[in-house]
Amino acid sequence: MAIDLDLCTGCGDCALACAQENNMPVFEDDSDLPKRVQFLDLMKVSNDRDAAYPDVEVCYIPKMCQQCEGNDPKNPKPPCVSVCPVVATDVGDDGIVSQIWSRCIGCRYCQASCPYEARAFNWWKPRYEGDFKKSLNPDVSVASRGTVVKCQFCSHIWKRERDRAVAGGELDINAVTYTPACVAACPTRAMVFGDLDDPGSELSRLLSREKKRTFRLIHTIDEMKEKDEKKWKAMMQAKNYPNPKVYYLTSKAWIKEMMKFK
């Protein structure tokens, strides 16, 4: 996935569409940020660490699971998958880090290991009071209290699309494409979703065209590759990196600068 922050107005439609599609649990107080459950977080980022009024800027960065793969694309190892004691989370052939909610024992080890705070735990029992239940999507199972849930790039929509394609006579189900709820809801087309392995996809073409504007969330190792490839290689051997599959695009230097710890 790629998110063009130059086009993103921070309207938050992606977050709402995501919540509606994925049956986000409703707690007593969903403005209680540390405990609320959401897959897509709108992060307000400003450079007031480095600049003073009036040189400051702000932007909103939509952040979902970054679908890490680790250093080896053939043997993807996101930080969260290897730590799960009960194999509740795994990487599929599609590269999506999945989570089986009914398998999770709620130890939160994956949450602790995730550098992107992409996972959420159901601290309270989800309350779909009254008719709220009517708007629940049957394709996404409702998680119970005490389990960890996460964004799976709406892979249930892919299943839906494939089922539909098969019913329509399509034989190659892997060729079926789909659009996650957040991408479909983006009013400014700032989000692009596609197959990174397919060089002909809109996403791959965008990323190869816009190399200069591309960066990944707090993944500063990318910069090393441009500066000093040898050192980059050595570092990649010294340590496994999350290597997220969500790319962000921006023409503003300060956003990239804010990805670094100072």
Binding site: L16, A17, S135, P187, T188
Partner: peptide, 26 residues
């Protein structure tokens, strides 16, 4: 049951929140 609203141009919080109002418990 209405479970999701998809629009060609959903830049409007009105439409995205509509289901929550429609089925609001209160």
């Amino acid at each position: 049951r209405a479970v999701k609203i998809e629009t060609s141009n959903s830049g409007c919080p009105f439409s995205q929140n509509a289901l929550q109002l429609l089925y609001h418990p209160e």
